[in-house]
């Protein structure tokens, strides 16, 4: 890895994003609109809104960054830039961390706007600090990036890449404890939920919702999600081959 090449790669990816104002607009505005929708749905049940909106603040960046990254990486593979990059001094980790950091920055903007709007405009109530919510949302976004980088290796076309969303993201959303509490699940469902990283991200958010001070469980959960990020990045690195058939 080289800090100069990593830096150039981060700047390059952010520039690509800046040339696409519509994508930036949607990244920032769509989560806020969906949260506003939730707010009106649960107009007379503020406690339910607090519970669901808090989880959604973690789910949105995960899903959106997963999709954006798998398409971006697939483009690198199909338009020949990846092959060209790998004939230069760029290391695999320069590219993977470049995506992780650049989209992490985009996710930080997205999460800050969404959390701030939810907190101050829509009246989302959490016992703990809203900044912890933003931190967890950013870690979730980076998890989405890492899984997207990995999954893009198994798609040949954009159509296929999009199909990985229901495969990778939806089961995690269903089993994260939002719809059915994790403790109420059948044993085998709970076992699956236990190995899905989003379950820990959601638990961390629920810890912020219920406790004024950051708890040990919260830090443990964040540690687990970060560990999953590292594992996904290592797996993604294994899918990047300088030599192909």
């Amino acid at each position: 890895m080289s800090s100069r090449i990593l830096g150039a790669t981060i700047v390059r990816i952010l520039r690509q994003l800046l040339h696409d104002p519509r994508t930036i607009g949607m990244l920032v505005v769509v989560p806020v609109l969906l949260l506003a929708l939730l707010r009106f749905m649960y107009d007379d049940q503020p406690a339910v809104f607090d519970r669901v909106a808090l989880v959604m603040l973690g789910v949105f960046p995960f899903v959106i960054m997963f999709l954006v990254t798998s398409i971006a990486m697939l483009r690198e593979r199909t338009n020949g830039t990846l092959e060209r990059l790998l004939t230069t001094r760029l290391g695999k980790l320069d590219l993977l961390f470049g995506y992780g950091i650049a989209f992490g920055v985009a996710a930080a903007v997205q999460a800050t706007v969404a959390a701030a709007m939810a907190h101050w405009l829509l009246g989302l109530d959490t016992a703990g600090s809203i900044w912890l919510v933003i931190l967890i949302a950013v870690v979730n976004a980076v998890l989405g990036v890492a899984l997207g980088l990995f999954c893009s290796a198994f798609a040949r076309t954009e159509f296929q890449a999009v199909q990985f969303m229901p495969v990778v993201a939806v089961p995690q959303i269903l089993l994260c404890g939002l719809f059915v509490g994790r403790e109420q699940m059948a044993g085998w469902l709970k076992a699956i939920s236990d190995v899905l990283p989003l379950s820990y991200a959601v638990e961390a958010l629920q810890q912020v919702g219920a406790n004024a001070e950051p708890t040990g469980t919260l830090w443990r959960d964040l540690g687990i999600v970060s560990g999953c990020v590292v594992v996904a990045l290592v797996l993604a690195a294994a899918t990047l081959r300088r030599r192909t058939a």
Partner: peptide, 9 residues
């Protein structure tokens, strides 16, 4: 095939 980024200058 030209392998440059279409969304960059």
């Amino acid at each position: 095939a030209p392998s440059v980024y279409a969304d960059l200058t």
